[in-house]
Amino acid sequence: MRMLLNVKIPHQPFNAAVKDGTAASKLSRILEATKPEAVYFTEQNGQRGAILIVDLPDPSKTPALAEPWFLTFQADVEFRVVMSPDDLKRAALDELGKKWS
């Protein structure tokens, strides 16, 4: 299942990593472990943030996606199920509309 991870990184832990020169290596380690399909770094409500698209083959793998952010940067992580246009085509919306109308 494709998931969107929305990561909000607090200033203090990331600032400390920037100052001690470990920010890049810590981010690389997380990204190597989670193997996102895509990742974008952005601002979120005045804080550093990241948006990742990942494949979650099994719900038991959720901690492996979140814990690196929690433990490394004390970040908040939100998960959302996402679909590609092809996934949406296979959702049979017309049939659901007929069934529930």
Results as ranks from 00 to 15, higher is better:
F14H: 08
F14P: 01
P63Q: 03
Q44Y: 08
E43R: 04
V54E: 11
Q47M: 14
P36E: 07
K61A: 10
F14S: 14
S60F: 04
G46L: 08
L4D: 04
M3T: 03
L56E: 15
L56V: 13
I53F: 10
I53S: 07
T34H: 08
E43D: 13
A64I: 00
R48D: 05
L4R: 03
Q12D: 15
K61E: 12
F41L: 09
A17K: 15
E67W: 06
S60N: 08
H11Q: 13
T62D: 08
H11F: 14
N45A: 03
T42Y: 00
V39Q: 12
S60K: 09
D20H: 01
R29I: 12
L31K: 03
L4S: 08
A16F: 09
Y40D: 10
P36M: 05
T42M: 09
V54L: 11
P13Q: 04
Q44N: 13
L4W: 07
R48A: 09
P10V: 05
F14V: 09
I30Q: 11
A33W: 04
V18P: 08
L5Q: 10
E43I: 04
T34N: 06
R29D: 14
A17S: 15
G49N: 04
G49L: 02
P63C: 13
D58A: 12
Q12C: 10
I53V: 13
K8I: 09
I51H: 11
K35E: 15
E67R: 08
A64C: 02
Q47I: 10
Q44T: 14
E32P: 00
I53K: 02
M3I: 04
V54Y: 01
L52V: 07
K8F: 01
A50P: 05
K8D: 05
N15G: 02
W69S: 05
G21F: 06
S28D: 13
T62G: 13
K8L: 04
L27A: 03
A23V: 14
A23K: 12
K35L: 12
L27S: 01
S28V: 00
D58F: 00
L5Y: 08
G46Y: 10
S28N: 02
A23Y: 09
A38K: 15
T34S: 03
E32D: 14
S60R: 12
L56M: 15
H11R: 11
S60Y: 00
V7E: 02
E43G: 08
I51V: 10
T62E: 14
V39W: 00
K35S: 12
K35Q: 15
S28F: 01
K61I: 06
E37M: 14
T34W: 11
Q44P: 07
E37I: 15
K19M: 06
N6W: 09
D55L: 02
T42L: 13
S28A: 01
K35C: 12
L31H: 06
L4I: 07
L27H: 03
A38S: 15
P59D: 15
I51T: 09
R29T: 13
I9N: 02
R48N: 03
H11G: 11
I53R: 01
Q47T: 08
F14T: 11
P57V: 04
Y40W: 13
A24D: 14
S28Y: 06
F41S: 01
L31D: 08
A38V: 01
